[in-house]
Design a protein around this nucleic acid. Sequence first.
RNA 1: GCGGACGUGGCGUAAUUGGUAGCCGCGCCAGACUUAGGAUCUGGUGCCGUAAGGCGUGGGGGUUCGAGUCCCUUCGUCCGCACCA
Length: 928
Amino acid sequence: MEYNFSEIERKWQKFWIDNKTYKTEVDPAKPKFYVLDMFPYPSGAGLHVGHPLGYIASDIYSRYKRLNGFNVLHPMGYDAYGLPAEQYAIQTGQHPAITTEKNIARYREQLDKIGFSYDWDREVKTCDPNYYKWTQWAFIKMFEHYYDNDAQKALPIESLVTRFATQGTEGLNASSTQELHFSAAEWNAKSEEQQQETLLNYRLAYLADTMVNWCPALGTVLANDEVKDGFSERGGHPVEQKRMRQWLLRVSAYAERLLTGLDAIDWSDSLKEIQRNWIGRSEGAEMIFPVKDSDVQMKIFTTRADTVFGVTFMVLAPESELVKALTTPEQRQEVDAYIEETKKRTERERQADVKKVSGVFTGSYAINPLSNEEIPVWISDYVLAGYGTGAIMAVPAHDSRDFAFARTFNLPIPQVVVPLGEEPADTSTWSDSIDSKEGYMINSGFLNGLNVPDAIEKTKQYIAQKGIGRVKVNFRLRDAIFSRQRYWGEPFPVFYKKNTPYMLNESKLPLQLPEVDKYLPTESGEPPLGRAINWKTDDGYPLELNTMPGFAGSSAYYLRYMDPCNNNALVSAEANQYWQDVDLYIGGTEHATGHLIYSRFWNKFLFDLGIVCKDEPFKKLVNQGMIQGRSNFVYRIKGSNKFVSLNLKNDYDVMEIHVDVNIVHNDTLDVDAFRAWNPEYKNAEFILENGKYICGWAVEKMSKSMFNVVNPDTIVEQYGADTLRLYEMFLGPLEQSKPWDTNGIDGVHKFLRKTWRLFVDKDNALKITNDAPSPEELKVLHRTIKKTADDVERFAFNTAVSSFMICVNDLTDLQCHKRAILEPLLVLLAPFAPHMCEELWQRIGNNSTICDAKWPEFNAQHLVESTFQYPVSFNGKMRYKLELPADMPASEVEKAAVQNEQSIKWMEGKQIKKVIVVPGKIINIVIG
RNA sequence: GCGGACGUGGCGUAAUUGGUAGCCGCGCCAGACUUAGGAUCUGGUGCCGUAAGGCGUGGGGGUUCGAGUCCCUUCGUCCGCACCA
């Protein structure tokens, strides 16, 4: 009987559920292995063939590890809060919980068809109160802690309160929004409200007025990683800057640890590099420039303190708090006009015309603390408020932006660095600033003649001595804005007394998301929770109206999987001690600067509190590539309903039209299906070639509008889950992006049928014999054991599949039906094609699941050969092959090769200069 | 502009340490069988050439007995960051 995949797959999927085959428990007797997929947001569109790629890879790895004796934790869940469900709710009035549940059910159905080995008893959903209780709990903990830079960890806020009461800020080295200085007396004199406000400056979860990315279309603020090129990542709506009071997480406190932590984890270089860029560490100096006739001091950050003698002006960001103080009455009108204009321009516009130089003079002069020269203070939007101090010292000769600015406004451009091997030059002849990374100093007082690194060092020492500056490390990483003015998210466990925020008692958690009549802001512009009835504490204090962002629920889900039903803790110490961290995390690169930063931050915080035992959550991370679509085209003759086949289209004036890839096979159009596809084409006519209509094709993003979406359900129906699994892996290296082309799937399907036929004959009878295997058969098996184990270990699933094909081809040629060979082969193949392997495993007489089998042991003895086919090369070109005993010494191999009659032909009478023999590899005869 | 990845048949790809380039599969060609199917099986298939042979891993150069692999240079594609001081 033929391989009946649909019956087999149904049978074993049921068996796995009935027998709880994938249930996992803590088992100290076995080594643990934790394999995690990035859990999906359940969208309404369902899964397409690209989504399960990473899930299949991790599933194969999980099953492989289990066969190798590991206790494998392999869970799945849903990132269930999110904007699409809420947008849908706004349009239809349907509660987002209902939409979400429906989508989850659909996802589950699709996932189940593919035969994953998830322990579904550990499923988490971020919108489940039993889950988000712990999201709220972590938030409370962050509110109750601050980051101590000396201890390099989070400490309880009470210890800070005690410190303030006894010594004020004296000697404090803590992460803060602003650097504050006050005495114990001043602290003790503050009101409760003032003290609370001050503590927000240090808390790891804090409320502050900041510039935020406001997206009017979505009616909410967004975190930096949710904004791409001035537009929202979800929906592509414009984003503008706005000042708002928001909750933030002090991620920046962990910047240094987030950076150094990267060195110890096994992630791809590109991903680490993305995180390093995002964290953006730069080492430099913070310097103070006094302002003439004023007690205002300008603080700036520079990585090039050595060029301070080349500073001829200062620039403030338009949003800088110093603008008001430094603008003279004469300049006020001009400055106000400029600031008004910059406000109108969106972030997008500002970025778009980077080249355009604009700015305005404040009327004030700063004093260069090294040269004591008076220099004008300008305002320009090329200085960013959010980076450094929002003010810079401009060195026009050696910075292209400063140079352009100086040219536009006729400011002096003195050269201070001369590149190695060059002479000082006349800067008025320059068309741009010149590089100053290497060279020696001129026009720089006590720095003259020094090379750049020495000058930087000397300047740092000088400014520290004189008290006009200090060495400082600056980070690009900003604190994460944590409030969303939306409905479908975790409520904050926060209430207010006279505008001062307080945390709910832990016993009140979870604070459940209330019902509202509409999912829109209130008439007075408050977030949707403003519509909730009785949204206050038992004592009548109003509760927070914002909800948490998408990344809140995904920041610790990997910990919850370890102990998903625990009502007393996020994760018990026992469960955490056993499972420790994620050994293998598979997911897309798109989370590089969002989820993967936030969850590392979250984990480090919990580590500081002693809740978790590992500082880094994800030991190894593999990024699967994107599956692109492969679109098909038909060519319509303009102004007609006639379509011309691909290779004839150049004879006509045609229009290229996307056609549904599901009615195209091997680029040949099913013309009847095409006519039925769209009423417009009901009467379509075709100009064929060789009786066929051939379609054009292109690789594009997989999307509905390109008609190139392939649904895994369709594939499972036509070929079975095992074929889908195998084909997804066979497509190419896991990390690489590649197009999905259903055409190739026949190859792996044929392979499975061929494998089936090694076991079962046409009449459904077992072919298996108990004969002793031949050396040749053992060689085939052991070669495959070695190759597949190596391949799986290095995530080269594509080559593993091809080695299975080679193996089955060889065994078919050898007409091998021996149990001693085929039984171990089933175990090798089981992680890839679990349904078929379970079925055959049972048929050959096993009573328990193949998941509990043992990975066969590799024996190198079976691969030993007595002879070797030496490739014989002349000047590096392979000419013929020579079979020689494998253990023949090099000198004799050389003799045999040189004396061989075929060699004489290739030497063409030339002299042998040298013979290279690498035993067991090659022979190269150098002639000339 | 800075940083990263990559470039091999008609297509997806392989070559784990510098050692036989093109494994495996699709497609294509030929044949067998047939209930004529988008089925199955067998053989062939890098390019040029009847052949002998020559040429071949984006282009150019180098190191080496030997380079897809290492170095320099150049072109191209993709990704990330980007007035970051």
